[in-house]
Amino acid sequence: MFGGIDPALLIASLMVASVPILLAAVGELVVEKAGVLNLGVEGMMIMGAICGFITAVETGSPTLGFLGGAAGGAALSLLFAALTQVMQANQVASGLALTLFGLGLSSLLGQNYVGIKPPHTGAVPFGPLADIPFLGRVVFGHDPFVYLSIIAVAAVWAFLKFSRGGLILRAVGESHDAAHALGYKVVRIRMLAIMFGGAMAGLGGAYLSLVRVPQWVDGITAGAGWIALAIVVFASWKPWRALLGAWLFGGITVLQLNLQAAQVGIPVEYLSMSPYLITILVLVLMSSGRGKAALNAPACLGQNFHAAR
């Protein structure tokens, strides 16, 4: 207990609060590891939010809803993949255009879904485990997606670090020419990575519209996609650090609201900018300590690949 805030509740809420940005960030991390910079995360998230919402409302099943959300995000990312991988278009501009398009399209699709309550997504039934003091609240009281987001981080980490597929993916991101020379299908691998990123962003969006809010409203993501992009940079392309970044950011956001609610005498306007400032501060501390180690960006990030032969 500090300042009248219960740490167990705080940790539990920050885990929930960071799920959308974490899912999207892990997806984008894989995309960037493959050497592709997709700035359209916000657009894919909101497409996931509306597609997931429509699917869940029409079928009555939250599970199908989440699948629908992932499909929606992946479908939009396919557009990006076609532009950048086939048509050789500039990645930064294509990503931004994707966001613009996604925001517009989601709003058009959602016109008839304003003011509807989606089917309920329940917590995972852990039975008596949920009643353990502290741990029960922090570890065993969540909906499936809180666990899924952590599993996703572990899976991506293991994939990148231990699997052959992960090695190839990283090779493509570090030097597409070398990977191509070794006979790997650079374009195909990148397209798969992009679609994975889209599906994860879509899942994050669906979590917003089906669990966090839960409702469809225009512009529901309210910038979460941009934060996810920043988290990838913060993490210097390492999955576990993405988890740290998302929890840090989500944690400070939740904490500042909790401090307000607990009426701690810090001016509100400084509290409300604190998540951004503290994220910068932590990044500065982390990047200054080990010099060049922080420069972990995949060497081919943002560069298009064209097989000359």
Binding site: S13, A17, R212, V213, A222, A224, T253, V254, L257, Q260
Partner: peptide, 10 residues
């Protein structure tokens, strides 16, 4: 919406 939810929760 997400921030509003967090505020209510806090």
């Amino acid at each position: 919406p997400a921030k509003e939810a967090d505020a209510a929760k806090a």
